[in-house]
């Protein structure tokens, strides 16, 4: 992106892609932030706003796709430029998914408003969302500054998100065991937690794409899978007869 081409319009086009990605990123960050805020404070209006905002990201992705295809067709890009363009397509797809996940969290706000007794659950969800959002912010900051040496931390944090998700999963199961009336809201919260965890995964994907754009190498595949919810079992408390 920093290199100068003979045709200055080409540079302009590449810059346009980067700016559009950043704008999408800003929207995605805002949507997730507001979706979680709406969930925690049971704010229906804010949730509706988030649902309406999703269209901006869909449009952004379509625009980037069109533009990128046009650039490839017209300029026959090579090396860094080609990676930059293909990377933009991939990142915009990831951001669009982040927006969808945020929208899904917002949609569930309506269903969990009754039965809000477990404040610690909401604190946990908020903490999980904060981790995912810091992850997203750091990744997009790296996209701006191109300092790929910071990507290692992003991966570390993905592990923290997974561990936190596992813990919330267990807590939700416990609440459901305690009282079947909690099942409705807890199931929705479980999906919300899963969505937020997925946002962290998309952020990690973006980090890998950025690493590829800048260095031309794939980030070594050393990601340990920390999601242990597939093995979480909560024992039924013994019934005293």
């Amino acid at each position: 992106m920093q290199s100068v081409h003979i045709v200055s319009a080409y540079d302009e086009e590449l810059k346009f892609l980067a700016k559009r990605i950043a704008a999408m990123g800003g929207h995605a960050e805002r949507m997730v932030e507001q979706a979680v805020a709406a969930l925690v404070s049971a704010d229906q209006d804010l949730a509706q706003k988030v649902i309406r905002d999703d269209i901006v990201l869909d449009e952004g992705q379509r625009e980037i796709d069109d533009k990128a295809i046009l650039i490839i067709a017209r300029r026959q890009p090579m090396a860094t430029d080609l990676r930059e363009i293909v990377g933009a397509i991939r990142i915009s797809a990831d951001l669009e998914r982040v927006g969808d996940l945020g929208k899904n969290v917002a949609k569930r706000v309506m269903s969990v408003t009754d039965g809000r007794e477990a404040t610690s659950l909401y604190r946990g969800l908020e903490a999980l969302a904060n981790l995912a959002l810091i992850q997203l912010k750091d990744v997009l900051d790296v996209y701006a500054s191109r300092s790929v040496e910071k990507i290692g931390i992003v991966r570390d944090r993905d592990e923290q998100i997974d561990a936190m998700y596992t813990s919330l999963f267990r807590e939700l199961l416990t609440y459901m065991m305690e009282d079947p009336r909690n099942i409705t809201s807890c199931t929705h919260l479980l999906f919300c937690a899963k969505n937020i965890e997925r946002i962290g995964d998309h952020a990690t994907n973006i980090a890998e794409t950025i690493y590829y754009i800048v260095t031309g190498d794939q980030l070594p595949a050393e990601r340990p899978k920390e999601d242990k919810t597939d093995r979480v079992v909560v024992q039924q408390p013994e019934v005293v007869k």
Binding site: Q2, K15, K19, A22, A23, G26, E29, D141, A144, S145
Partner: peptide
């Protein structure tokens, strides 16, 4: 990381910014 050459909209991504 506000070094010269950084594109501002990439750093301040909030829609209103």
């Amino acid at each position: 990381g506000m070094s010269p050459g950084l594109s501002l909209p990439l750093k301040f991504r909030a829609p209103e910014m």
